[in-house]
């Protein structure tokens, strides 16, 4: 079974996270499983509700929405155990939490694969929040590991240039998209299409939302220490590395997920192949190949 893509959506109170989720649930083209903080704010057309049971709402389109509760891992386990399982899980971080903390859990929770860390910003209120004596550091911290920043309520913000500048100062690596009323293309919840086998070791792929991707397909088993050293040496412009590989000496297949200098290997079967995702400043294919060392070409 391939891991379920998991997206974390963060952002301060009022940034439009719930609006985005309500919109995604109502217009879903796939079975989303959504864990929300403020269950009461979920507001989908009653015609869409198939069943409601305590803190779970099942929709006629196959989506399900649950209250997060105290234990995020337990909530994820509950979602993954549903029949049928969701095709994509979205976790709404609370308005004051650090979404990166939540995203890290997806690196170790078996059966999930972390998609871009999305942080929503209320473009009209952001600069004020950043200078607020009580909220400034919380808002800045939420952007610290963002990969995709949605400048929401752009229609209310007037000049976006200073907002963009502030986001860039806090997290130069993040890609920025602009939205109004929390409406974004659901495709932003994916980094790239699943890696496909390619003939060479690293191949530059077309950018998605301004991210660069490279795909690498190792032929043999990898040495843990060597791989670890390569991961430690990755520059910040490489946001992600994910995919399967066989690890020496016994060649068992592992899922490797790397994000923002944190990573985890979990034993899981899969077609060997990594995708690297980064900013346009990320090292080119030759430099990355040099970093990961010689491998047999497929």
């Amino acid at each position: 079974m391939s891991p379920i893509p998991l997206s974390v959506i963060g952002g301060f109170l009022g940034a439009g996270k719930t609006t985005l989720l309500n919109h995604l649930l109502a217009t879903a083209g796939k079975r989303y499983g959504v864990l929300v903080n403020d269950f009461g704010a979920i507001n989908v057309d009653t015609a869409l509700i198939a069943a409601r049971d305590g803190d779970t709402i099942a929709l006629t389109n196959g989506c399900v929405c649950c209250a997060m509760g105290d234990d995020l891992g337990a909530g994820l386990e509950r979602l993954a155990g549903r029949d049928p399982a969701p095709e994509h899980v979205i976790v709404e971080a609370s308005g004051v939490s650090d979404p990166w903390r939540i995203a890290q859990l997806a690196l170790i929770e078996p059966g999930f694969s972390l998609e871009p860390l999305v942080v929503m910003v209320d473009a009209a209120a952001f600069l004020g929040q950043l200078t607020d004596r009580w909220t400034g550091d919380t808002v800045a911290r939420q952007l610290g590991f963002a990969e995709l920043v949605v400048l929401n309520k752009a229609d209310l913000a007037g000049d976006l240039a200073p907002v963009r500048a502030a986001v860039h100062r806090l997290r130069p690596e993040a890609r920025v998209i602009v939205a109004a009323q929390g409406v974004v293309d659901p495709e932003v919840l994916h980094f790239v299409p699943p890696p496909r086998p390619t003939p060479s070791r690293f191949v530059a792929d077309a950018p998605a939302h301004g991210f660069m991707t490279q795909v690498w397909r190792p032929a043999g088993s990898l040495d843990r220490a060597r791989l670890r050293a390569a991961l430690e040496a990755l520059p910040r412009s490489v946001l992600r590395l994910k995919g399967f590989c066989r690890l020496a000496p016994d060649g068992t297949s592992h899922l490797l997920q790397y994000a923002a200098e944190r990573w985890a290997f979990t034993p899981q079967a899969g077609e060997p192949g990594f995708v690297l995702i980064g900013t346009p400043e990320m090292p080119d294919a030759t430099a990355t190949a040099a970093l990961f060392g010689p491998t047999e070409a497929a």
């Binding site: 170790i108 670890r228 200098e261 990573w263 985890a264 290997f265």
Partner: peptide, 11 residues
Amino acid sequence: RCGFSRDSNLD
């Protein structure tokens, strides 16, 4: 059993 190993580099 948690899947935590030397190669889980997490906070």
